[in-house]
């Protein structure tokens, strides 16, 4: 007959081995796949900038005047000569004081909370046809120019890693960074929930002529 001790000891040994394995799985490098990223490799891709304090902004600088030159060449075709936006491309300027209006205009001047985010976005995503091809100095210059178009900095402003985080953006304090939802509460009523006589259609998409067709080839309709 087996004694309970004889059974228990191997079980304990197995359990200990399992625990060691589990602990091992959480250790860095336990799979050992891939290669450790070198500082040079990291530097090549490490482009992000933190909006709040500009952490990650590189050396370099740019003036408003230089920004005007780069802007005319790289940006004006879509964003308009003075940031007014061509067609449906985004406006970069204006809308100050409009955020409570029926038709608000959120722009760099009226809406964006952090200036370093502007440098980061131009650097990573613009110009649209050739993103991330501008020099750091030219991105600083464009940032200075667009901030100046929005009357956020004077004409003498020089954008660099120290000056950009200090620019006070108009809408900075109007963001709530914790989600307040759920912001509607309902009890799911099943019968006679509203007076049938009060059910009224307040708006209909019928006859609006905004909807592309959903059969046949793709529709190219434009808004009238």
């Amino acid at each position: 007959m087996y004694s309970s001790r004889k059974i228990c000891l191997p079980i304990i040994a197995i359990l200990l081995a399992c625990a060691a394995n589990l602990a091992g799985a959480a250790e860095p490098g336990s799979f050992g796949y891939g290669s450790v990223a070198t500082p040079a490799q990291i530097a090549g891709w490490d482009i992000d900038v933190r909006g709040e304090d500009g952490t990650g902004l590189p050396p370099g600088n740019g003036t408003v005047d230089r920004g005007a030159e780069v802007y005319a060449e790289q940006c004006a075709a879509c964003h308009g000569t003075f940031g007014e936006g061509e067609g449906r491309f985004p406006k970069l300027v204006g809308g100050v004081g409009s955020l409570r209006d029926e038709r608000p205009e959120p722009t760099v001047g009226s809406y964006w909370p952090f200036a370093p985010t502007l440098w980061d976005y131009i650097n990573r995503a613009m110009p649209m046809q050739a993103p991330h091809t501008l020099s750091a100095d030219d991105v600083y210059a464009l940032t200075a120019y667009i901030l100046n178009l929005n009357d956020l900095v004077p004409h003498e402003f020089v954008a660099d890693r120290n000056s950009l985080p200090k620019v006070k953006m108009r809408n900075r304090d109007n963001f709530i960074w914790t989600d307040p939802r759920p912001d509607t509460m309902t009890k799911p009523c099943m019968n006679d929930c509203v007076n049938a006589a009060d059910v009224r259609i307040s708006s209909t998409a019928e006859g609006r002529n905004l909807t592309p067709r959903t059969t046949g080839p793709l529709d190219t309709m434009q808004q009238k």
Partner: peptide
């Protein structure tokens, strides 16, 4: 990071002018 996609876009403008 407060990237462009979580400040200028993908934020929700409320009637009082604040944004979520």
């Amino acid at each position: 990071w407060h990237t462009r996609e979580e400040t200028s876009k993908y934020t929700d403008l409320m009637p009082d002018g604040t944004s979520r």
